[in-house]
């Protein structure tokens, strides 16, 4: 880590997000959805975030673009502390960071034409004439490989893949620097999924985008990311360059996760599968020490007592484990 790296676009320090659950004060429990995450995201990189349902991927994504309040820790965007920034203070920064969701339909008003939906960001952030606005909208539609006349249609008149293109167009409207994409292709058929991944790749090169790409599909993350962070129960347990994470993972959870992926190949079967025992523990009652110790093949008594912290094991490769695998 001696080489000089560019300044991070986004930096989180011990960022945590807790949700109170339970109806009355007496029953109130806390879900530690995101727990003390320290992460630098550098300009131009695509950080893939993987992990199983409920591990906190979406919560982390929403924290990064300040779509949700942060419980503790700090968040910086281009060196500016925005942890507690008000909506008004955030306004000039908003246009630089956008989000793309799994189900774009949920975020598109069904009663408005696509052209109007896409014009919204310009109305809020830029003073453009109506015809200028329409030119920009058509430009956007063409860029995401739709047709200018699609501006006249309503969201429900589009297929799932086309709606995701609209969601991407909307995120792209104000030329953001950062796009957090939360499972953008998870609801799509593989053939359509591939189209959208190719599109996101082209846009990255064309607009110098930095992506945070959240997905539970490891093969998609491998295809699209330059760096990967693996989450388990609210924390990052391993992070490193994509090839290191996939060909030489060091955390026992990453190893099990990778080996569980069914591979569509009958000749190059992956080796012995590591079958995880049991299910995820309840987030309301997380295990002591290493959160993974209840399912880990390598757990010892220290794992049950002490929480391992992320430490460097190889170039840019960090692992939170008392007994990391040899890789």
């Amino acid at each position: 880590m001696t080489e000089t790296r560019p300044k991070p676009l986004v930096r989180t320090s011990d960022l945590s997000k807790h949700y109170p659950v339970g109806r009355s004060l007496l029953q109130r429990r806390i879900v530690h959805a995101v727990e003390q995450i320290s992460l630098d995201i550098f300009p131009g990189e695509t950080l893939g975030i993987v992990g199983e349902s409920g591990c906190g991927k979406s919560t982390l994504g929403r924290c990064l673009v300040r779509l949700t309040e942060i419980t503790s820790g700090a968040l910086e965007f281009e060196g500016l502390d925005i942890t507690k920034a008000s909506q008004r203070q955030l306004r000039p920064i908003r246009r630089q960071m956008q989000m793309v969701f799994q189900d774009p339909a949920a975020s598109l008003n069904p009663r408005r034409r696509v052209g109007d939906l896409l014009a919204d960001p310009f109305r809020v952030h830029e003073k453009l004439s109506r015809s200028e606005m329409m030119d920009r909208v058509e430009e956007l539609l063409v860029r995401v490989e739709l047709l200018p006349e699609h501006a006249q249609r309503f969201p429900h008149e589009f297929s799932g893949g086309q709606r995701q293109r609209i969601g991407i167009a909307r995120a792209l409207a104000l030329r953001p620097r950062l796009i957090v994409a939360d499972e953008p292709v998870s609801a799509l058929d593989v053939s359509i999924q591939a189209q959208i991944i190719n599109l996101l790749c082209d846009l990255r090169d064309e607009f110098n985008l930095t992506y945070v790409f959240i997905a539970h599909d490891l093969s998609v993350v491998r295809q699209f990311s330059s760096r990967v962070a693996v989450m388990y129960m609210g924390s990052i347990v391993e992070t490193g360059p994509v090839d290191a994470i996939f060909s030489a993972p060091r955390h026992h959870y990453t190893i099990a996760l990778r080996s569980a992926v069914p591979v569509p190949d009958v000749d190059n079967r992956p080796g012995q599968r590591i079958m995880l025992k049991g299910d995820l523990p309840s987030p309301l009652d997380p295990p002591s020490g290493c959160r993974f110790h209840t399912r880990c093949v390598a757990a010892t008594s220290v794992c049950r007592q002490e929480r391992p912290v992320l430490s460097l094991v190889d170039k840019n490769h960090f692992v939170a484990c008392h007994h990391p695998s040899a890789g």
Partner: peptide, 21 residues
């Protein structure tokens, strides 16, 4: 098959997506 990103070996620059729907 071309649409599925591989889990091993080199990553293709682009996936062979099927056009249209």
């Amino acid at each position: 098959f071309g649409s599925i990103p591989p889990m091993h070996g080199p990553r293709p620059a682009r996936l062979t997506a099927i056009p249209g729907s």
